[in-house]
Amino acid sequence: MTKRTGTKKYAALLRGINVGGSRKVPMAELRTVLEGLGHGEVRTYLQSGNAVFSSAGGDPAALARELEAAVEAHFGFRVACLVVDGEYLRAVAEACPFPAAELEGKQLHATFFSEQPGGERFAAVDAAAFLPEEYRIGDRVLYLYAPDGLGRSKLAEALARRTVVKDLDATTRNWNTVTKLVELTQD
Rank of each mutant, 00 (worst) to 15 (best):
2 T>F: 13
10 Y>Q: 11
12 A>I: 01
14 L>V: 07
17 I>D: 10
19 V>R: 11
20 G>M: 09
22 S>H: 15
25 V>S: 00
28 A>Q: 13
29 E>S: 06
38 G>N: 04
38 G>S: 07
41 E>G: 10
44 T>Q: 01
47 Q>H: 13
47 Q>C: 08
54 S>M: 10
57 G>E: 15
61 A>T: 13
62 A>C: 10
69 A>Q: 14
71 V>F: 13
72 E>H: 11
73 A>G: 05
74 H>E: 15
78 R>P: 00
80 A>Q: 12
82 L>Q: 04
89 L>W: 05
90 R>Q: 14
90 R>W: 10
93 A>Y: 04
93 A>T: 02
94 E>W: 08
95 A>N: 03
103 L>S: 04
106 K>G: 05
108 L>K: 02
110 A>N: 05
115 E>N: 09
116 Q>W: 07
116 Q>T: 13
122 F>D: 03
125 V>E: 12
126 D>P: 02
127 A>H: 03
129 A>C: 03
131 L>C: 08
138 G>S: 07
140 R>Y: 04
141 V>Q: 03
142 L>H: 02
142 L>Y: 04
143 Y>M: 02
145 Y>F: 15
146 A>M: 05
150 L>T: 02
153 S>D: 06
154 K>C: 06
156 A>E: 08
158 A>L: 01
159 L>W: 01
165 V>I: 15
166 K>I: 05
168 L>W: 06
168 L>K: 08
169 D>C: 09
171 T>R: 00
173 R>K: 14
173 R>F: 00
174 N>H: 14
177 T>W: 12
178 V>L: 15
178 V>I: 15
179 T>L: 15
182 V>C: 12
182 V>M: 12
184 L>W: 05
184 L>P: 00
185 T>A: 12
